[in-house]
């Protein structure tokens, strides 16, 4: 990602954009016809954004295209949060924003002015593990570990959702008591894919934190 402070449009970039602009001026119907040609002349635009990450106030000037995931990893160097698919299909990028777990790859950094973001680094550290982190270690809830930060952020939020009475697809009675059964945990965690297939140990780790078994 280009740092805006150090962004220095090269002579070539400028010439390309001037040339494209000239073409567009000469053929406005082409410009209207679609993104294809018109977009060639687009310059990146930057915008400021301020949010809190793991309790610390952060301010950035970002290319508007920067996802929250890339802002965390590339700009704030919080590389615990992982990029798996970059399309909402794997859950590796799951972080907790204003109390809700979301896919940080499908949201823009600039959309989070004033947000409170919690990443895996904010849940705990090696000397002071979050209970969910400790349970994943105890139950071997991973092999390669790539999906693990997303799994753990998702798991923490999943238990909060059950406590708050948010129903799931497998909840039989929409007004009954919500319990952290294996079926509930599996369904609610289905947005987190594990290529290593550590699922059964992940369920055990979450069930333990839910207080269901020791």
């Amino acid at each position: 990602m280009t740092d805006p402070q150090h962004w220095d449009p090269s002579r070539r970039d400028l010439m390309v954009s001037v040339a494209a602009a000239a073409v567009l001026a000469a053929a406005p119907e082409l410009a209207k016809a679609g993104a294809g040609l018109a977009s060639e002349s687009r310059m990146p635009t930057y915008a400021p954004v301020a949010f809190t990450v793991n309790g610390e106030a952060r301010q950035l000037e970002v290319d508007t295209r920067t996802t929250l995931l890339d802002a965390l990893r590339e700009r704030l160097h919080l590389t615990g949060t992982k990029k798996g698919c970059d399309h909402g299909q794997c859950g590796a990028c799951t972080v907790i924003v204003d109390g809700h777990r979301i896919n940080s790859c499908l949201t823009l950094a600039v959309m989070h002015e004033g947000s409170e973001v919690t990443t895996i680094e904010g849940l705990g550290d090696p000397d002071n593990l979050h209970p969910m982190q400790a349970a994943f270690v105890k139950h071997d809830g991973y092999q390669c570990g790539y999906c693990t930060p997303g799994q753990i952020c998702s798991a923490v939020a999943t238990l909060a959702e059950i406590k708050a009475g948010v129903p799931s697809h497998v909840t039989e009675d929409l007004f009954g008591e919500m319990l952290p059964t294996d079926a509930e945990i599996r369904e609610r965690m289905s947005g987190n894919i594990c290529r290593c297939g550590a699922y059964s140990n992940i369920v055990e780790a979450i069930a333990e934190v839910a207080g269901r078994r020791a």
Binding site: G88, E161, P167, S168, F175, S190
Partner: peptide, 29 residues
């Protein structure tokens, strides 16, 4: 929307359809 009491009570069809879609993370956004 899926968790809203009135939706669960009177429009369970809508709550069920929402809960059948996407993932917990995606539904939050």
């Amino acid at each position: 929307l899926a968790a809203h009491e009135g939706v669960r009570r009177d429009y369970a069809l809508l709550a069920r359809a929402l809960l059948a879609g996407a993932s917990g993370q995606l539904r939050n956004r």
